[in-house]
Amino acid sequence: MIELRGVHKAFGANQVLRGVDLVVPRGESMVVIGGSGTGKSVALKCILGLVHPDAGTILVDGQDVTGTDRESFLARFGMLFQGGALFDSLSVWQNVAFRLQRGAQRRSPVQAREIAVEKLRRVGLKPEVADLYPAELSGGMQKRVGLARAIADDPEIIFFDEPTTGLDPIMAGVINELIREIVVEMGATAMTITHDMTSVRAIADNVAMLHDGVIKWTGPVARMDASGDPYLDQFIHGRAEGPIEAVR
């Protein structure tokens, strides 16, 4: 279980998070929605320790993330970055097997490659792709390779940062379906940030709406349409009129 309590973060004069409280139950898929620049990515990076919050606590399974051994803590996580964040200098299989070839649980190159090819197959990519370099792949393929890398070491918690941004609707659908299948199949806790409502309905068990640095609404995806929350209603229906200023 992931728990954020009163998390604050500012960059200079720009107060991005103003006391985020959020609980992601174990084995469930939480999707955080909100407009661009509302601090969704910052919240995610706070949990991973890539950004240090100014105040508040973040607990993973009851343990404060700042007090734990970073390496073993991060070994439980997988993350799909918005742009894939694949390492240009490494081939596709070396990207997928990156964690498998390092650290205490390192596998032999042969084993690591086998696992990488299997994970690539799981995300719908053929073994021939394994020896290509990221620059030779399309955007959709890069996202899939990023997904394969995120699940390579069977993580307990997976984060997805804007998984469908920049993809055509069909490829976005494929990625949404893959994420849902993988999360269910692995029994992992998932946290996704997006502003793509199709993605929300395909992936989420629970939804949280982040606006003005705080969680405005949170609840099961089934209750999202009848929430009665003016912020959430405006966002999910994409209205220009409402409490959220259209020009920010």
Binding site: A85, L86, R102
Partner: peptide, 16 residues
């Protein structure tokens, strides 16, 4: 470029 394309963040999340 690695920093801008989040590859440095990716390294950290991969315990490196």
């Amino acid at each position: 470029t690695m920093k801008v394309t989040e590859q440095i963040d990716a390294l950290v999340t991969l315990s490196t």
